[in-house]
Design a protein around this nucleic acid. Sequence first.
RNA 1: GGCCCCGUCGUCUAGCGGCCUAGGACGCCAGGUUCUCAUCCUGGAGAUCACGGGUUCAAAUCCCGUCGGGGUCACCA
Length: 465
Amino acid sequence: MIRTRIAPSPTGTDIHIGNLYTAYLNWTLAKKHGGKFIVRIEDTDRTRRIEGSEEKILSTLNAFGLTPDESVEVGGKFGPYRQSERLDIYKKYSKILLDNGSAYLCTCSRTRLETVREDMKVNKQIPKYDKYCLSRQEAIKKEIENGKEHVVRLNVPEDEDVIFQDIIRGEVKINTGNLDDQVLMKSDGYPTYHLAVVIDDYLMKISHVIRAEEWISSTPKHILIYKAFGWELPKFAHVPILRNPDKSKLSKRKNPVWASWYLEQGFLPSAVLNYLALMGWSHPEGKEIFDADEFAEVFTLERIQPVGPVFDVKKLEWMNGQYIMKLEISNLKFLISNFYKDKNLDPNILEKSIPLVRERLKKLNEYLDIAGFLFEKPSSYEKDFSGEKELLKKVADKLESLESWKADEIGNLMQDFATSENIPFGKFFMMLRVVLSGKKITPPLNDSMEILGKEECIARIKNVI
RNA sequence: GGCCCCGUCGUCUAGCGGCCUAGGACGCCAGGUUCUCAUCCUGGAGAUCACGGGUUCAAAUCCCGUCGGGGUCACCA
């Protein structure tokens, strides 16, 4: 049984797009093999916790369709799925580590830790804890009985190679000499990430740990913990970190990173996911547009490349445009009216406008810019036609005479008119376009005029003469 | 700085020793269709496969080194 998971921590305003990426991979692998996808909230850092973050992360995940099989919301038999509710479990397991000598108590003050590290840096050594407390465990127990604050540390062996197989990168080897005696239990009684992931991944029977590359260097610590418990290792796959254009780790300073931002811009969830699938991975047949079902069919972790792909919003926009073009009219209408729900767009006009805007939209938020003139009169004009008033009067009269208000008929009438007035089509229609819409760039004029209606068109012309 | 990961057009990538005078996509440029824009079609520029050594009849593909980029070194995840 394949069981995958993502473990977001509620310390940001929303789920990070990079986490959405790993979520999609985890979700897809589980789906591909009929397994389970779990969302576990890693809220062990009480100081960085942000109110409402957990709810937002969960709702965004749902908005993208990456619904978990087990989570704080839907439950499951391996719960609780919030680490802050599993404190007893961590306490119990850290005791085991303490008892078998894999971990030890430490009462060093933060200032001492700092000075120790500073000294080591000065001596060009790797800054890490000096195991001072390891040799005085009995004394420490007394200190603790008297109420002294303490932590539990992992007793990392001095010089030992930790080797693990990464599905994407192959064998990775790190010597324990580079590892610090990681704190496992904090003085506030909460576990650190390193202890909690191992215990939870084990207890929740996670088969594949698929997470970002930034975790690769702490994986040996986790392996040491697995070994200390005598537990079997899950499979590891460290996926690429999404990058800013300058190649650094994708960050909010340089890029929009909250997943819901993309939704707010009018990107479609399916398009975003499709784009994400192409980060470090490519379809065996070279296809670029494919949905989640197809992705699940052909996806393999082995095909992921260990590179750091730059997140390119331009290509995402192109892809989003492709998805919008393929949408049914009714679907696109629904999406747009939902996107602009506070504007209460006239559903009739909206529906008629869809065929005109469908191949012009890259994002939903461009709709009003393109078709807004269909709903309200122009408030300004991108062109001056103070010298064309006589001409416009004739245009209004012509239109007045038209009985069948259809795009084709309107087009023919206007072409004939322009011809009889000896005005090049380009010039004439540009003038009419701006008069009616205020803009130089619009969807096809005749169709727009049909939607606007005879009265409205004439009124708009008269408005400028 | 130590350790770890990585290095093919600006970007996403194909490529797993000969099919590569390196293919596709986005973007860019030019042309065509068109009353604007967009779509669509055609063409183009763009990568001495980071560099230097090997191995081999043959290397983008294997090995080593150099350089470059990234990640990580917390009682944060």
